[in-house]
């Protein structure tokens, strides 16, 4: 199990995310799984800390689930956090994936939300396909995963 992204799928995701950034004028957009693993991102802002952001977004998403439960909702599928300069919009893409959009106060939050939700809907079927696939047949039959020699981590 896992996310096995073929070249084409990655290209498609990346293109759609780029498009989302252009349309919404958000700074950075990220797709991650609900365990916090980065799947794809687009945009340069905050890219150095994208791994950590991803871990925390999954956390924020899960944390509101408890609150939703108390209110009789299964979960909040979209969350908006507003800051003075930077704001974020988080939205579920199906059962396993989360989209995060990071944008500034120069952007229209409503626009970000609208394009984000459209993008999420578009992706939700694609991810259903990706998730249901156990293994992908790579076009090049000589390609398989091989462990590199030597210890994985060495002390400096």
């Amino acid at each position: 199990m896992g996310f096995m992204l073929k070249d084409l799928e990655y290209g498609q995701l990346k293109q759609d995310l780029d498009e989302f950034l252009t349309n919404s004028e958000a700074q950075t957009v990220l797709l991650c799984d609900r365990g916090g693993n980065v799947i794809v991102s687009s945009g340069e802002a905050f890219i150095d800390t994208i791994d950590m952001i991803s871990a925390l977004v999954a956390g924020a998403f899960a944390a509101t689930k408890e609150l939703a439960g108390i209110l009789g909702e299964n979960e909040f599928t979209a969350i908006f956090h507003q800051g003075a300069k930077i704001s974020i919009f988080i939205s579920a893409v199906g059962e396993e994936v989360i989209l995060l959009a990071i944008f500034t106060d120069e952007t229209n939050a409503g626009l970000v939300k609208m394009y984000a939700l459209t993008t999420c809907r578009k992706f939700s079927n694609l991810f259903k396909d990706i998730m249901s696939r156990k293994q992908i047949k790579i076009d090049d039959p000589t390609q398989s995963f091989q462990l590199a020699k030597g210890p994985i981590f060495q002390e400096d």
């Binding site: 990655y10 799984d33 693993n37 790579i138």
Partner: peptide, 15 residues
């Protein structure tokens, strides 16, 4: 749950 990206030649694991 590994994330494999063939285009970027990248694999990600969580421990």
């Amino acid at each position: 749950m590994a994330v494999v990206n063939y285009a970027k030649k990248e694999i990600q694991f969580k421990i």
